[in-house]
């Protein structure tokens, strides 16, 4: 829309609408005000009035929460599990989808159907026996085991997304590469994989939001305190310090900070990824 048109369209009614939306936006931000303002209050201050601006700033709340939740450790665990999982999911899903599109055999048709059908299965219908299987295979209480679980759960949707996208990659380039003496593996890694980049970003974004925030699967897989991810550390912290809001609120602020920063920095890609990936029912 051109500037002049925008000016003409900006009527009194639009201005009123703008004010209304700003009010709605402020209501949406109120929870963050409560969280941040109270996270720096002393316990007494917090109990007497939770809505007021802090009378003193107790930054030591953050220091205590940082130490008790072992924040650096939880952060590194979350980061490690999320980054390794999303990269591996994207790679193995891109590979599988590529082969299924280019080699549409009976087997691959069946496998693709299976992946699509599996998107219907709720996590609760798998989790109880999964704990047992993880025990048999010695995957319990290890980050490797947790990452392997994410590969299994993440593959169906990611394969589905890559499958649709790979179909739009023109076959001619691949044929030309084969004529030039490229192996089937070379064709994929050197030619096709770079072309899948837009969908790679979508898959990585969708999976990173899910895995970073996931509580249930890590809670079933991990027991050791030193392996805890941020949601696990927050949950166990709440068990020990129920109603100690002067510790709980800074811990929650620390917990949401990384993902909020990630969102603000990557907003464009996240919004694009959601629009492109909004197919799962």
């Amino acid at each position: 829309m051109s500037k002049s048109k925008m000016k003409r369209d900006y009527s009194v009614k639009t201005f009123a609408l703008e004010l209304l939306m700003i009010a709605a936006g402020l209501v949406f931000l109120v929870p963050f005000y409560f969280l941040l303002a109270n996270s720096v209050k002393s316990f007494g201050d917090l109990l007497s009035n939770a809505a007021s601006w802090p009378s003193t700033f107790e930054w030591s709340n953050y220091q205590r929460a940082w130490e008790i939740t072992r924040f650096p450790e939880a952060f590194m665990n979350s980061l490690l599990v999320t980054v390794v999982s999303i990269l591996l999911i994207a790679i193995i899903s891109a590979m599988a989808a590529y082969r299924m599109v280019r080699h549409n055999s009976r087997t691959n048709q069946f496998l693709f159907m299976m992946f699509v059908a599996a998107m219907v299965i709720p996590f609760q219908s798998v989790m109880i026996p999964l704990v047992k299987v993880a025990g048999w295979l010695d995957l319990a209480d290890s980050r490797t085991g947790l990452i392997m679980c994410y590969l299994g759960f993440g593959a169906p949707l990611s394969i589905f997304l890559f499958h649709g996208f790979t179909k739009s990659v023109p076959l001619e380039i691949e044929e030309a590469a084969v004529v030039d003496g490229c192996t089937p593996y070379g064709v994929f890694w050197k030619i096709v994989f770079p072309l899948l980049k837009p969908m790679f970003v979508t898959v990585v974004i969708l999976n990173s939001l899910w895995i970073w925030n996931d509580y249930l699967l890590p809670s079933l897989m991990l027991q050791s305190a030193e392996l805890r991810t941020i949601p696990l550390a927050t949950y166990s912290f709440f068990g020990q310090y129920t109603k100690q809001w002067d510790l709980a609120l800074p811990a929650l602020t620390l917990g949401i900070l990384p993902i909020v920063i990630f969102f603000l920095a990557m907003q464009k890609y996240i919004i694009e990824g959601i629009t492109a990936g909004s197919v799962k029912g």
Binding site: M95, A96, I128
Partner: peptide, 30 residues
């Protein structure tokens, strides 16, 4: 062809079967 099939589709199918497929079927039994 078999090599390519195993290389490209193998990893995703393996993890999916192990983590989702088998537990789902076991759940029916349990």
């Amino acid at each position: 062809q078999l090599g390519q099939q195993l290389f490209f589709v193998g990893p995703a199918t393996f993890f999916f079967t192990l983590i989702v497929g088998i537990p789902f079927l076991l759940g029916m039994y349990y």
